[in-house]
Design a protein around this nucleic acid. Structure first.
Length: 291
DNA sequence: AGCGGGACCTGTGGGC
DNA sequence: TGCCCACAGGTCCCGC
């Protein structure tokens, strides 16, 4: 049976894409119950995870985002101490969470299937599809979760930050671009929004992160909030069009000023955008506008 | 401590 | 048409 997902799928899910996924998934699964978890690909389970067998009869009473992570909160009906109270999914590069009626089958990229009953009593399969298999599922509880350094060290949310905090967070010795991608400095920023925000703020990505003054930190945070907020309003960015995506793709890719545009003209000064690598990541910026 | 490089992975696209 | 290879990205890990 052909798939016609009601939720967006993305490559490279960063903060706005994960926010969009959470928002579109909520009406389908919030206050539903996960009956079971069928793991089809072992490596997709996080090494710190409780076993999939522990997932049984868990009511989803919270679904939210932290950085690039999707977080499920469970109410435990079985009252067993071993029952998970939380599940965290990192989609990494190509992960997707797709709810379908239960008679839809897996694809070759399906790594896990959650069988659930929604709040109206309909049977739903929530598919975790992941082409490149970098994504991880962590079934956990609040105590176990704190043993995961990535979670414990996750930096503050950029949309809830003020620029004094950003200045403090950027006080290390990294290059600015690397600092923005470091999830322990600030949560949720990936390659796309780092480059877009740095361009909008007119700041060179190769600068030492601690070299930014108050005004520059203020401008950078304003730019970050602006690109993230505008992207969320447009349901994120879709880098590649999945052929079966039912036309529901994000639109913010049409607003990119620098990402993927190395060698093209700068929209501001008409100079040529430079493409380089910083911290192993492709970085595009305008050497003329970004000082 | 930070940085570069490699590893992990697969689909895509350019060059020949 | 087909083959090869670079490339894309987030995070971890290793060695300098």
């Amino acid at each position: 049976m052909p798939r016609h997902q009601d939720c967006w799928i993305f490559t490279l899910p960063e903060l706005p894409e994960v926010e969009t996924i959470v928002r579109t998934l909520k009406p389908h699964i919030l206050h539903g119950s996960i009956l079971s978890m069928r793991l089809l690909h072992r490596p997709s389970l996080h090494p710190l995870s409780l076993p999939p067998e522990n997932v049984a009869n868990l009511e989803i009473n919270g679904l939210w985002r932290r950085g690039k992570l999707v977080v499920f909160d469970f109410k435990n009906h079985s009252r067993e101490a071993s029952a998970p109270t939380r599940m965290v999914i990192h989609l990494r590069m190509t992960g997707a969470l797709l709810p379908y009626p239960k008679d839809f089958s897996a694809t070759k990229h399906t790594r896990c299937i959650f069988e659930l009953v929604d709040k109206s009593g309909n049977c739903i399969n929530l598919f975790f599809d992941d082409i490149r298999t970098f994504g991880k599922i962590l079934v956990t509880n609040s105590i176990l979760l704190e043993k995961w350094p990535f979670w414990r060290n996750l930096g503050p949310e950029p949309l809830e930050m003020d620029h004094h905090i950003l200045k403090e967070r950027l006080g290390g010795k990294k290059k600015l671009k690397s600092a923005l991608l470091d999830q322990s400095v600030i949560a949720g920023i990936g390659n796309i929004y780092a480059d877009e925000a740095l361009f909008q703020a007119g700041i060179n990505p190769m600068r030492a992160s601690s070299s930014l003054d108050d005004r520059e930190c203020h401008n950078l945070l304003a730019a970050l909030k602006d690109v993230l907020t505008r992207s969320i309003e447009q349901c994120g960015s879709s880098i590649r069009d999945y052929k079966d995506a039912n036309g529901k793709a994000g639109a913010f890719q049409n607003s990119f000023k620098v990402y993927g545009k190395g060698g093209e003209k700068c929209a501001r000064c008409q100079g040529i955008l430079a493409k380089t690598r910083i911290g192993g990541r492709t970085t595009v910026f305008c050497p003329n506008c970004q000082l």
